[in-house]
């Protein structure tokens, strides 16, 4: 009984291992390649920061809950294979209002802001270019050449209590 249980766990471990290794390909990219602030008061927002694999032309969303009385800094890093600067937008989840678009700010890869009202934000990340894999829905019969231009994007979020100004 004990032997079969050990065998079961061993087999399960080896079955799960390749899946884990794929998902961890970009796991802590935002830390290892992160563009950290020089302001020592900023702390990494570990729960909100994340990394993922992207292909050229892909758009994806993540959520960030921001609180009144805090400053936030969002910085994006990416693998060179993905090409040009990453576009990112901050959207208010409640009313879909566009609060920030780095396309209007020379595609800067970092942005700092102060929050005066707590809310849930959607961070929309778009990688420039196009990919054969993303066009697959329009071709039912064919084979889809593997995307070779695939790389990591890291979104590092830092936060701190908004410093008091004046006397």
């Amino acid at each position: 009984m004990l032997k079969s249980r050990t065998l079961f766990f061993t087999i399960s471990f080896f079955l799960i291992l390749p899946v884990l290794s794929f998902s961890q390909r970009c796991g802590s990219y935002h830390i290892t390649h992160g563009n950290f602030s020089e302001n020592k008061f900023y702390q990494i927002h570990k729960e909100a920061s994340r990394s993922a694999l992207f292909v050229k032309g892909e758009t994806s969303h993540m959520y960030l809950e921001v609180f009144n009385g805090r400053d936030y800094r969002i910085s994006i890093t990416h693998d060179d294979i993905l090409g040009g600067p990453i576009r990112f937008k901050l959207i208010d989840q409640e009313d879909d209002a566009l609060l920030y678009d780095n396309a209007n700010d020379n595609y800067t890869q970092e942005f700092e802001f102060t929050v005066t009202k707590s809310r849930m934000l959607i961070i929309e990340i778009s990688v420039p270019g196009s990919s054969v894999g993303l066009e697959k829905t329009s071709q039912e019969k064919g084979l889809f050449k593997k995307d070779t231009e695939i790389g990591c994007v890291g979104v590092l979020i830092e936060h701190m209590i908004t410093p008091r100004k004046g006397f």
């Binding site: 794929f22 998902s23 390909r25 993922a52 694999l53 992207f54 994806s60 990340i125």
Partner: peptide, 8 residues
């Protein structure tokens, strides 16, 4: 090989 998941 398992196709890696992309995006968040």
């Amino acid at each position: 090989a398992i196709k890696p998941r992309t995006g968040f």
